[in-house]
Design a binder for these strands. Structure first.
Lengths: 206, 206, 206, 206
DNA sequence: AATGAATGAGTGTTCATTCAT
DNA sequence: TATGAATGAACACTCATTCAT
């Protein structure tokens, strides 16, 4: 009784997905050169050879993780938020809330942020082909910042620099999520304070 | 005619110091497993064997860098600042200014901060013996935060969490300094905003 | 389709045994520091890495060889012979015959004797944990010697010293076996002469 | 006040001789590949570089030791003994006595015997050019053995094989001298027994 | 002449990758 | 398809040799 081709395909997809997902976490925690295939396969719970059934090389696996990590859903969400007809302050608070919540609930998201940002730090490297993802996100936050500066609710300064600062802090807490056992996550307000002028005097707005 | 023992000692000290200093930067940039002795020695400009004249192993060299990185001068400075008879806000602005300036001018300092913080992320690891350094610094900033909360110039919330946030941002910009070629350093004010209530209206508040 | 665990175990056991056996000969001939892993693996006919699949280090392999070399079958045989209800002279002739024959036929046995004795020469060394093997064998020969001295067929003198002498000659011919191409093995009688009084007149003495 | 050229030459000779002498012991104990120049120089009490002032390489030093070890004084002595107008038994006892005594008193002699015999074991090796020394000594002992066989005081068998046996035991006790701390040296009679028929019945001859 | 720090070829060890089962 | 033993190129480390002092 041979398995149906469809079922076969399905099984393959499942294994492939499993490897990708688990590897993402492992790579995020240990880095590329800090990850041994022997350790990784043991962590996943499969044989070393199995990885090479689905991926050509360690390098290839790492790249594939990127394709996943760089999905454009996030960019779309970001775009939608940017063009919403609400105040910049509201956008920033909403975004901050959403990001911190997601980081706290989803370790994969933390891994994604971590990998993505680490790529930006290794520019001259072979692994950093697609940085559009990150830069798109930065761009939209910068746009919101500019809106906020007009509305006088966001601090002055280069919008891009501030966006970079904002995402940097997100990265920071992605790292904390991945590496720290006892959480010390900051609140959305703490995060938003990077961009917003003193919000304590306008308590009525949220 | 043998070399004088003093001169020998001197030569050894110089080389040892050179290796430690240069390796600190290299390790900070490439990580432990990302650093090959062959690359490192080439970067320093010495033969591979020379490293082993001064250090027992790659591991040992890494540890020794820590002994240096963990010098307690910084802690002392921090302590002095903490007990200065000035307002918490002044302390925070002064500290922020001093830290950002040092990061910008001294790549070694960026490397130091980077290595130290990365150690905190790898607690269960063999490399993280001495974390007093970091925790001491955190403690003093928390103290200043508490002072500031009494003085109503610092935002509310767990002092330790806020201190952790503050140092996290320092780490973030140490990374940027090490890995980014075109600087986007934030200002001391941008950094201080993490802790301080809206400083734009400071005239009336102090 | 994974290999069956039993078959795997079997394969591992065979390779491990092969490496141990072949290495024993190689180490005996070349010594520890005279043995390069590259040469050894080539001699065995495997890749260098394969050795490290089964043994942690060159040192570890060397130790493991000892565990095998120190098997206690020989000691048991020796014990049996010692307590056999026959004359000491017969025991000595039988033992001498058996030892010389084994040396001549079995190169592994020569390697075993060689390694074992060389260990005794390096007492203060890390490699000489278990010397019970050698000393047990010595003890039983000494016992036979004492029996022979009572029976007036064995020469006078310290039994232990004579046993040491006897085994020394065995070691000597183990070396000859391993290193000399054209044999000049002595006869069992030549060997026994070390201990026995003139055996040419034996008719009247027993 | 420059040193006189003669004095200079003298000093050189002393250092050279010191290195040769001490190295001979060290090589005998540790073998060629087991001897590190760093360890050897420390053992001698000089700097590593000093060895290279007097010898071109480790290999060269080892060869030079051989030139010394292979001095032909021993051969001459042996030749004289061989042609002495006394009985073979007397020659054997005398030789045995002299050899055992020398081994016991002179560690250098033990080293010499050890190195010489070890060379014979490594024939195909680059280090064993001159084996005349050993073979000459063997030849003379074989000659004495043949004399003894005619005189009916020496056991029957191939004279060369017996000579080889005899020198083998000398080698054995040279090893014991070098490596064993508590002596278990055999007597000259024990040694002579290898060749002589039962000497216990002719106690009056020595 | 003597030193010992520096060197780099050579050796021990690891690990990404292959392949027979 | 999944396995894990085997591989060898690459990496960590050693040690005979050199050379400035």
């Amino acid at each position: 009784m041979p398995k149906s081709p469809e079922r076969c395909q399905e099984i393959r997809q499942e294994m492939r997905s499993k490897i990708l997902h688990e590897s993402m976490l492992y790579f995020a925690k240990n880095g590329f050169s800090g990850t041994k295939i022997s350790d990784l396969s043991q962590y996943i719970g499969i044989a070393q050879g199995t990885i090479y059934v689905y991926f050509q090389s360690k390098e290839d696996l790492f790249q594939e993780i990127f394709s996943i990590v760089n999905n454009h859903q996030d960019i779309n969400d970001m775009k939608c938020l940017t063009y919403l007809p609400i105040s910049a302050k509201q956008k920033i608070l909403q975004l901050s809330h959403s990001l911190m919540q997601r980081l706290e609930q989803d370790e994969s998201y933390a891994a994604k942020i971590t990998l993505n940002t680490q790529m930006m730090f290794e520019k001259n490297d072979f692994r950093s082909r697609d940085t559009t993802y990150q830069s798109e996100l930065y761009k939209y936050v910068a746009k919101i910042i500019k809106q906020g500066q007009k509305e006088k609710t966001v601090v002055t300064g280069s919008a891009m620099k501030l966006a970079d600062y904002y995402w940097g802090v997100i990265y920071l807490y992605a790292l904390k999520k991945l590496f720290t056992t006892k959480y010390e996550m900051i609140s959305a307000n703490d995060l938003a304070r990077i961009l917003l002028k003193d919000e304590t005097k306008k308590g009525s707005e949220i």
